[in-house]
């Protein structure tokens, strides 16, 4: 049994994509490290996979650690930031 997790994409993760969400499958009790691995397998370019290593997963309220359980709330993948 697996769980479908839609992940919102931002910044360079949107490069060349028509959609802004990538849905991956993880175990029901997966943590963020396992979500990261699932994303790695789902991404279709070396650049995106390389970017994933330097990116954070987050909810609307906080950045997640790899040891955190994948929350039920909406999840986003955040590449390195550069506001201003």
């Amino acid at each position: 049994m697996t769980r479908q997790v839609p992940v919102r994409l931002f910044g360079a993760f949107r490069q060349g994509r028509s959609d802004s969400t990538l849905t991956v499958e993880v175990a029901p009790n997966a943590n963020v490290a396992e979500l990261r691995q699932a994303m790695h397998e789902a991404l279709d370019t070396d650049n995106a996979r390389s970017l994933l290593k330097a990116s954070a997963f987050a909810t609307d309220s906080e950045v997640l650690d790899d040891s955190d359980a994948v929350p039920e709330r909406e999840i986003s993948i955040l590449p390195p930031v550069c506001g201003g």
Binding site: F10, A54, A56, S76, P80, C82, G83
Partner: peptide, 30 residues
């Protein structure tokens, strides 16, 4: 704001090319 806010910028150049700017990592790289 520069290092913590989830903001990304894509520069557009005179030659028509565009590029996402490298930024600050929000977590320790894996």
């Amino acid at each position: 704001m520069k290092v913590r806010a989830p903001i990304w910028k894509q520069e557009h150049y005179v030659d028509g090319d565009s590029e996402w700017i490298k930024g600050h990592v929000l977590r320790n790289p894996a």
